[in-house]
Nucleic acid binder design. Structure first.
Lengths: 195, 195
DNA sequence: CGCGACGTTGATTTGCCTCAACGATTGTGG
DNA sequence: CCACAATCGTTGAGGCAAATCAACGTCGCG
């Protein structure tokens, strides 16, 4: 059985080179966990205490509205992070769910270990500040897109940014991410194929 | 003429008590500026280099879509911050505008001064990490609301959270924030008044 | 083989937009 | 201080994007 931490260390090195001490800290702190398809990493009401890195597999983060409908906010595959950053840092109950769409492997730490890591090695504090900014930026992009694009435009944008997900994820999930019904996604696809 | 920095210091003290040194640093670093109604603090393409605290007045942050339509993302009044956090930290050109809706007074620093402040006084680093988390949280809330509520529900929610803005801001601006036309906001209001 | 999940299609409905028109209010120049 | 223009909120008619509901074919799987 392979040691997944090397994948995470590679990931960090692609952002900011780590020294040997820092690499060792990653090896110590991050723990491996397997999640089976359809199992949950987080459910509404839980406080999100873990920050998780996806080694392999695929997750979706979603909320359930008052009519019981699900709305996907994010998909996370290899080399992405998956957690409710708000619940994680505020230590408040989450309004979100995180579900594995495939059998997956993650590396995770608790928020307390992470904060300790920040204190011990400023490099990580720096990396995670950037990650938070990226999260902020991508959320801003989603809002801007939502208020200014049609469903078809949102689909085309998604297809361009995450082409590999089109085949990997069911269209029910993609429709939920785009904010349309699966039926309407189907008509969008038909229309695009024609043109 | 009054010194506005005391207002900002009060604001900080309400979050985390400052010591004398920290208060002095605020006095040195933050500069006052008056912005007249209809003037811009930021325009698309600019890199947002200033982080601004609203002492008095009111601002709106908005984007312009490809059809030339404006979409308000945020209103900031007294005791709020106003800046494009993404452009500020990434030092990339902004896609947003910030406009004064009233004659206003702000206190601002450049991003470089702010980062220096973080290094010198960890307290501020802590406060601003919380502010970034709050920004993330409120953006998440907006997305969740957008995908799961009708315009009427969004209006009721806005009216509950920011009742004072209903009279302070024109309905054109409120409609733009809610993502509807002013005409439709009007019909929403009529319907609510009836029930 | 039969069942359930999934993607597709069509008919109908609905939420919201567009456009046009109208009084009321505000601002401005003479 | 008035006259006029400009802006703002409202109302209504008509249209479109997307939802809902129902039905059907296909596929993988027990």
């Amino acid at each position: 059985m392979s040691d997944c931490t090397s994948i995470l260390i590679d990931y960090f090195n692609r952002h900011i080179p780590l020294n040997k001490e820092e690499e060792a800290a990653v090896k110590v702190l991050f723990k491996e966990r397997r999640i089976r398809k359809r199992h949950y990493l987080l459910q509404e009401g839980d406080i999100c205490v873990n920050n998780s890195f996806v080694v392999s597999g695929c997750f979706r983060m979603f909320m359930v509205d008052k009519n019981g409908k699900e709305h996907n906010l994010q998909f996370s595959t290899e080399d992405w992070w998956i957690s409710d950053l708000y619940s994680l840092f505020k230590r408040e109950p989450s309004k979100l769910y995180i579900e594995a769409l495939e059998n997956s492997i993650i590396l995770y730490t608790t928020i307390d270990e992470l904060l300790q890591l920040f204190e011990d090695y400023p490099t990580f504090s720096h990396i995670f500040r950037i990650l938070t900014q990226n999260a902020l930026a991508s959320q801003q992009q989603r809002i801007l897109q939502y208020v200014s694009s049609t469903a078809e435009e949102r689909y085309l944008c998604f297809a361009q940014k995450r082409p590999e997900l089109l085949h990997r994820i069911s269209s029910v999930q993609i429709a939920s991410y785009l904010g349309v019904t699966p039926e309407f996604l189907s008509t969008i696809r038909k229309k695009i194929a024609k043109s």
